[in-house]
Design a binder for these strands. Structure first.
Length: 311
DNA sequence: CCCCTACGCCCAACCAGATT
DNA sequence: AATCTGGTTGGGCGTAGGGG
């Protein structure tokens, strides 16, 4: 194994650490979270088939924030490999996304959003839509521990291993799942009722029918993408909103148990509430509803922690 | 179109009985 | 009495699909 360093730059405002911590994705394999070194790593299978390990960290900076991507690999990295890795990191960390309009709204809307640090707002995502869709389906009808287990089993069973380290694997290619029979897939990964959904999704992606490729085209209206997502078995309102967020479309709020709890505790005095009333709270945020809700949630938990610590 | 309910799955908690 | 094993129950969770 040899190591290569790839340097990238993130334009301010950018906050590496908050991008990783803002939601649970960093805890799902093949992502690995290293709080002690303020970095995260990930085994990644490149288009060439080569499996590498990326170790990503950020330096301090006022304007441009330098990012270091330490790549562990076999043989040599081609120019193509290097540029693919740059794209992967750029996509995961959303380096190309522009949040300035969201920041302006935050300043205007008072607490708690006005206290948001510059660079907040990015939520880690996967290099490929397939991985994000599978992971979102694995968050439905289950608690977080179950999600982690299902993703771990998928990676262990169908991911390509890093050369010389059979324990470190990449996220499965859709093709790797589509290559086995349904019965085989079902027996190797315990996904419950999700088994046929994820199997079908893998086959669709493997076929490259490209009905999903257009989702990243921001010219296409979000509502259209949403309808397409809802037609996928296993994806309902909550999952569609989550996938849309991962696609960089923040129009929809994922109504799940986390949302219900926040609404009840923060806005409805701990009691029951009407869903429409709750959603109306974020109505003014337009295409930034998801982020407005999400940072409402994060700051609510933070202040709850602070008050319990000071007791 | 929206609302409602049943569903399917896993896991934690609980319990009974058996074994040290 | 303490620990282990196997079995059962209840809670948690969005989705699918049917009905209004």
């Amino acid at each position: 194994m040899s190591e290569s360093l790839i340097r990238l730059e993130a334009a301010a405002p950018f906050d590496f650490w908050s991008t990783l911590q803002a939601h649970g994705w960093v805890d799902l394999l093949p992502n690995e979270y290293h709080p002690e070194s303020q970095s995260f790593s990930r085994v990644q299978q490149l288009a060439s088939g080569k499996v590498v390990q990326l170790n990503i960290s950020a330096e301090q900076g006022d304007g441009i924030i330098p990012l270091n991507v330490l790549v562990a690999h076999e043989g040599r990295l081609s120019v193509k490999d290097r540029s693919e890795i740059e794209n992967v990191v750029c996509h995961m960390l959303r380096l190309d996304e522009d949040f300035s309009e969201f920041y302006r709204l935050c300043k205007k809307n008072g607490m708690p959003w006005s206290q948001m640090k510059p660079g907040n707002g990015r939520l880690l995502r996967s290099p490929e839509l397939f991985e994000d869709m599978v992971k979102v389906i694995c968050t439905t009808n289950v608690q977080w521990g179950g999600t982690k287990r299902m993703v771990r089993e998928l990676v262990e069973q169908f991911g390509e291993a890093l050369p010389g380290n059979p324990n470190l694997k990449a996220f499965p290619l859709a093709q790797a799942i589509a290559d086995v029979s349904f019965e085989d897939f079902q027996s190797r990964v315990r996904l419950g009722y999700r088994t046929p959904y994820i199997y079908q999704l893998a086959r669709d992606f493997a076929q490259g029918s490209n009905c999903y490729a257009k989702f990243s085209d921001m010219q296409i209206p979000t509502e259209e993408v949403r309808k397409e997502l809802l037609s996928v078995k296993g994806i309902g309102n909550y999952a569609a909103a989550s996938v849309l967020m991962l696609l960089g479309r923040y129009d929809e709020i994922p109504v799940d148990s986390v949302f219900q709890q926040l609404m009840s505790k923060k806005y409805f005095d701990g009691g029951n509430f009407d869903l429409k009333e709750a959603l109306a709270i974020y109505q003014d945020w337009g295409k930034w509803k998801y982020l407005a809700y999400w940072f409402d949630l994060l700051t609510f938990h933070q202040t709850a922690e602070d008050t319990s610590n000071s007791d």
